[in-house]
Deep mutational scan, measured.
Amino acid sequence: MQRVNMIMAESPGLITICLLGYLLSAECTVFLDHENANKILNRPKRYNSGKLEEFVQGNLERECMEEKCSFEEAREVFENTERTTEFWKQYVDGDQCESNPCLNGGSCKDDINSYECWCPFGFEGKNCELDVTCNIKNGRCEQFCKNSADNKVVCSCTEGYRLAENQKSCEPAVPFPCGRVSVSQTSKLTRAETVFPDVDYVNSTEAETILDNITQSTQSFNDFTRVVGGEDAKPGQFPWQVVLNGKVDAFCGGSIVNEKWIVTAAHCVETGVKITVVAGEHNIEETEHTEQKRNVIRIIPHHNYNAAINKYNHDIALLELDEPLVLNSYVTPICIADKEYTNIFLKFGSGYVSGWGRVFHKGRSALVLQYLRVPLVDRATCLRSTKFTIYNNMFCAGFHEGGRDSCQGDSGGPHVTEVEGTSFLTGIISWGEECAMKGKYGIYTKVSRYVNWIKEKTKLT
């Protein structure tokens, strides 16, 4: 034993070699072989497995989906700052455009905790909710729209109204504003409101030439003092309507412009014939205590009207009353817009006519005020429907199939267009061939041609 100890002390290297040989010859039971080890760690190889990531292109799944990435790591994937920024906006807080917040056709661009709407022409605001041009839906104005110097929408209202708090709607500024039905039992019968379409306001006024200088022999019209197929109006439903009495009662109609003036057809009036105007009328054979009678003290036909040349060209006249009318729910003026808007309103496509005229061709006159909704007829169809001249200051309205029309005794009465609950004068009943005849239409004086003249002559002093 002493000898062994001496050998170990003198030859430590020998001992180490012996131990190493023993270990190498022993069977290893701690580690699995290569094949079995792979069965336990069965993990798919990654895209760049075996390579240094710093030297390969980034992978979106590896960089940002398996674990949260930084902007720089995302930049490695896209290799483009702009594309990385677009991805980053949604990656950080989701897609803010998912709810489609942009209105009126706006395009949404996502941002971090926010979004941006790219608005089409005519709109602005956070969600493109603000109209900035009158060309689109009248700028959301209830009545009139004008573009300011910086191309912003400025709404306005006709006389007797003021802008509401929203700067879009119009509200009454006087007790009985024009064009409004205020009798409670008839307010439910107000005709369907007309909503502004998209309009090209630059070209809204037709490029028409008034044929002022045409000389033409007097034409022989049949029954051209021209509501057939209409309905009984309720008291106060058309408070701007008046009836004219002269040699015979209810020979023509008219509309209240203001307390002192009536507008009617020029062919209705004769110099030297006494005319009485009755406002607030409903049943011409009954006294309903809503009527107001006034005498006409002055007749002003349009300066281009000449019955000797043509009885229905420039067929418009103004009547001055001896005493002002007292405005109330049964006696209310009709609204008159400017030339541009009167023309736009007419193009809405349908209007209402009213009167006490004959209820059928050569038949009896109506006792109760009649009204009828009539569609506008395109000019080409209008011209083809008659052998008589249709001037540019006239328009056609009615039904091709016949059966409904204005008729004798309705002449001078109103053709009105309702705009968001307020009625505007767009025409004056003038003439036609018979009444409600198939293929024939009622012919009306186009008020847009005469609004400046009306307003100039009827100013209240």
Score class of each variant (00 low, 15 high):
residue 19 L to Y: 04
residue 231 E to M: 09
residue 357 G to R: 07
residue 246 G to K: 05
residue 167 Q to R: 05
residue 239 P to D: 00
residue 58 G to D: 13
residue 235 P to C: 03
residue 91 Y to F: 09
residue 340 E to P: 12
residue 456 E to I: 08
residue 245 N to R: 06
residue 34 H to F: 05
residue 380 A to Y: 10
residue 29 T to G: 09
residue 42 N to D: 13
residue 308 A to E: 12
residue 42 N to A: 08
residue 69 C to N: 13
residue 279 A to H: 00
residue 349 G to S: 10
residue 404 R to L: 09
residue 230 G to M: 05
residue 168 K to A: 13
residue 410 D to N: 03
residue 363 G to L: 11
residue 433 E to D: 11
residue 24 L to G: 02
residue 128 C to I: 03
residue 287 T to K: 03
residue 349 G to F: 10
residue 42 N to L: 05
residue 60 L to I: 15
residue 269 V to N: 00
residue 335 C to R: 00
residue 51 K to G: 09
residue 389 T to P: 09
residue 4 V to E: 05
residue 330 Y to F: 12
residue 131 D to E: 12
residue 254 G to E: 00
residue 194 T to F: 11
residue 160 G to P: 01
residue 415 H to G: 02
residue 119 C to G: 03
residue 336 I to K: 00
residue 196 F to G: 11
residue 394 M to L: 13
residue 233 A to D: 05
residue 365 S to I: 14
residue 435 C to G: 08
residue 328 N to H: 02
residue 383 L to S: 08
residue 170 C to G: 01
residue 359 V to I: 13
residue 433 E to L: 07
residue 176 F to H: 08
residue 298 R to P: 00
residue 135 N to V: 11
residue 400 H to C: 10
residue 17 I to E: 00
residue 445 T to D: 01
residue 312 Y to F: 12
residue 201 Y to T: 05
residue 361 H to I: 14
residue 42 N to R: 03
residue 213 N to D: 06
residue 412 G to A: 14
residue 136 I to T: 03
residue 4 V to H: 13
residue 142 E to I: 03
residue 137 K to I: 04
residue 265 A to V: 03
residue 122 G to T: 07
residue 3 R to I: 12
residue 62 R to S: 10
residue 452 N to I: 05
residue 114 S to R: 09
residue 395 F to A: 02
residue 393 N to G: 10
residue 351 G to V: 01
residue 394 M to D: 01
residue 48 N to V: 04
residue 49 S to I: 12
residue 87 F to N: 15
residue 293 K to S: 06
residue 453 W to K: 00
residue 288 E to W: 06
residue 284 I to W: 10
residue 302 H to L: 01
residue 457 K to G: 07
residue 153 V to Q: 10
residue 9 A to P: 12
residue 17 I to W: 09
residue 256 I to E: 00
residue 130 L to D: 11
residue 16 T to D: 02
residue 45 K to R: 12
residue 155 C to V: 00
residue 142 E to T: 10
residue 364 R to A: 14
residue 384 R to M: 12
residue 59 N to Q: 12
residue 46 R to F: 06
residue 426 T to R: 00
residue 33 D to Y: 02
residue 105 G to Q: 09
residue 145 C to S: 03
residue 450 Y to D: 02
residue 401 E to K: 15
residue 218 T to S: 12
residue 83 R to L: 11
residue 314 H to D: 12
residue 26 A to V: 12
residue 248 V to T: 05
residue 16 T to H: 09
residue 5 N to H: 13
residue 334 I to M: 00
residue 326 V to T: 04
residue 91 Y to M: 14
residue 322 D to M: 02
residue 137 K to M: 10
residue 186 T to Y: 10
residue 303 H to V: 08
residue 309 I to S: 09
residue 353 V to Q: 11
residue 223 D to P: 09
residue 348 F to V: 14
residue 447 V to L: 13
residue 252 C to Y: 01
residue 408 Q to S: 14
residue 456 E to C: 10
residue 455 K to H: 13
residue 108 C to E: 00
residue 65 M to S: 05
residue 28 C to F: 00
residue 434 E to H: 15
residue 123 F to H: 09
residue 58 G to I: 07
residue 272 G to S: 08
residue 188 K to T: 04
residue 375 P to N: 15
residue 189 L to W: 08
residue 269 V to G: 03
residue 111 D to R: 10
residue 66 E to N: 11
residue 322 D to V: 02
residue 381 T to M: 14
residue 434 E to L: 15
residue 251 F to N: 07
residue 270 E to T: 08
residue 219 Q to R: 07
residue 20 L to H: 02
residue 176 F to V: 07
residue 228 V to Q: 10
residue 212 D to K: 06
residue 376 L to P: 09
residue 431 W to I: 05
residue 112 I to Y: 08
residue 437 M to Q: 09
residue 299 I to P: 02
residue 55 F to L: 11
residue 456 E to Y: 08
residue 273 V to N: 12
residue 341 Y to A: 12
residue 393 N to F: 04
residue 4 V to N: 09
residue 393 N to H: 13
residue 22 Y to K: 01
residue 255 S to T: 12
residue 431 W to P: 07
residue 352 Y to G: 06
residue 119 C to N: 04
residue 302 H to R: 02
residue 154 V to W: 09
residue 385 S to N: 09
residue 274 K to H: 13
residue 387 K to Q: 15
residue 144 F to E: 00
residue 29 T to E: 09
residue 37 A to W: 03
residue 460 L to V: 03
residue 312 Y to I: 09
residue 65 M to V: 11
residue 325 L to K: 00
residue 226 R to Y: 14
residue 47 Y to F: 11
residue 233 A to P: 09
residue 227 V to T: 10
residue 393 N to D: 08
residue 359 V to C: 05
residue 110 D to Y: 14
residue 387 K to A: 14
residue 146 K to V: 07
residue 89 K to V: 05
residue 125 G to V: 02
residue 307 A to I: 09
residue 383 L to Q: 13
residue 461 T to A: 13
residue 420 E to Q: 06
residue 264 T to S: 05
residue 67 E to F: 03
residue 276 T to A: 07
residue 225 T to S: 06
residue 104 N to K: 14
residue 406 S to K: 05
residue 143 Q to G: 00
residue 265 A to H: 01
residue 89 K to N: 05
residue 270 E to V: 06
residue 228 V to T: 12
residue 179 G to W: 01
residue 157 C to V: 00
residue 18 C to L: 11
residue 19 L to A: 03
residue 318 L to M: 03
residue 232 D to R: 10
residue 53 E to Q: 04
residue 426 T to M: 00
residue 208 E to G: 02
residue 347 K to V: 03
residue 103 L to P: 08
residue 105 G to C: 05
residue 242 V to D: 01
residue 47 Y to A: 15
residue 282 H to P: 10
residue 204 S to W: 07
residue 199 V to P: 09
residue 313 N to I: 08
residue 108 C to I: 04
residue 287 T to H: 04
residue 17 I to M: 13
residue 171 E to I: 11
residue 244 L to T: 01
residue 193 E to W: 12
residue 84 T to F: 07
residue 277 V to N: 00
residue 47 Y to R: 11
residue 50 G to Q: 13
residue 40 I to M: 14
residue 242 V to M: 00
residue 2 Q to A: 10
residue 124 E to I: 10
residue 122 G to F: 05
residue 349 G to T: 07
residue 304 N to E: 14
residue 154 V to K: 11
residue 27 E to A: 05
residue 276 T to V: 08
residue 233 A to Y: 08
residue 100 N to R: 12
residue 258 N to V: 00
residue 224 F to D: 10
residue 417 T to C: 03
residue 320 E to P: 00
residue 178 C to I: 00
residue 212 D to G: 08
residue 95 D to K: 14
residue 275 I to L: 11
residue 7 I to Q: 09
residue 240 W to M: 00
residue 116 E to K: 13
residue 398 G to Q: 12
residue 409 G to I: 09
residue 12 P to R: 08
residue 422 T to E: 01
residue 259 E to G: 03
residue 229 G to K: 10
residue 215 T to S: 08
residue 172 P to C: 03
residue 239 P to R: 00
residue 185 Q to F: 10
residue 43 R to V: 13
residue 453 W to M: 02
residue 235 P to S: 11
residue 286 E to F: 10
residue 221 F to S: 07
residue 39 K to Y: 07
residue 410 D to A: 08
residue 123 F to P: 07
residue 441 Y to C: 05
residue 322 D to Q: 08
residue 123 F to T: 10
residue 286 E to M: 09
residue 285 E to I: 09
residue 273 V to K: 12
residue 7 I to K: 09
residue 365 S to Q: 13
residue 6 M to C: 07
residue 431 W to T: 05
residue 207 A to T: 09
residue 15 I to K: 04
residue 111 D to F: 13
residue 164 A to T: 07
residue 148 S to C: 06
residue 117 C to H: 02
residue 152 K to P: 05
residue 117 C to Y: 01
residue 143 Q to I: 00
residue 234 K to Y: 13
residue 31 F to R: 15
residue 212 D to W: 13
residue 449 R to G: 15
residue 391 Y to D: 15
residue 83 R to Q: 13
residue 55 F to W: 11
residue 371 Y to W: 14
residue 380 A to D: 14
residue 309 I to E: 12
residue 45 K to S: 05
residue 98 E to L: 13
residue 52 L to G: 05
residue 457 K to C: 12
residue 359 V to E: 04
residue 366 A to Y: 09
residue 283 N to G: 08
residue 50 G to E: 11
residue 308 A to R: 10
residue 330 Y to I: 03
residue 357 G to W: 10
residue 25 S to W: 10
residue 183 V to M: 05
residue 19 L to W: 04
residue 95 D to G: 13
residue 314 H to K: 02
residue 422 T to D: 00
residue 278 V to Q: 04
residue 161 Y to V: 01
residue 380 A to R: 04
residue 199 V to D: 09
residue 322 D to T: 02
residue 393 N to I: 02
residue 62 R to G: 06
residue 409 G to Y: 13
residue 327 L to S: 03
residue 310 N to A: 08
residue 287 T to D: 10
residue 331 V to K: 00
residue 26 A to Q: 00
residue 156 S to W: 09
residue 344 I to C: 10
residue 246 G to M: 05
residue 108 C to D: 01
residue 299 I to Y: 07
residue 105 G to I: 02
residue 295 N to G: 05
residue 368 V to W: 07
residue 308 A to V: 09
residue 140 R to E: 14
residue 279 A to F: 01
residue 373 R to L: 08
residue 84 T to H: 14
residue 178 C to E: 01
residue 381 T to R: 11
residue 241 Q to N: 11
residue 113 N to E: 14
residue 120 P to D: 13
residue 368 V to E: 11
residue 300 I to M: 10
residue 11 S to G: 13
residue 325 L to M: 04
residue 323 E to R: 04
residue 371 Y to L: 13
residue 373 R to S: 14
residue 61 E to N: 07
residue 8 M to P: 07
residue 94 G to W: 05
residue 146 K to R: 10
residue 353 V to M: 08
residue 183 V to H: 07
residue 277 V to I: 07
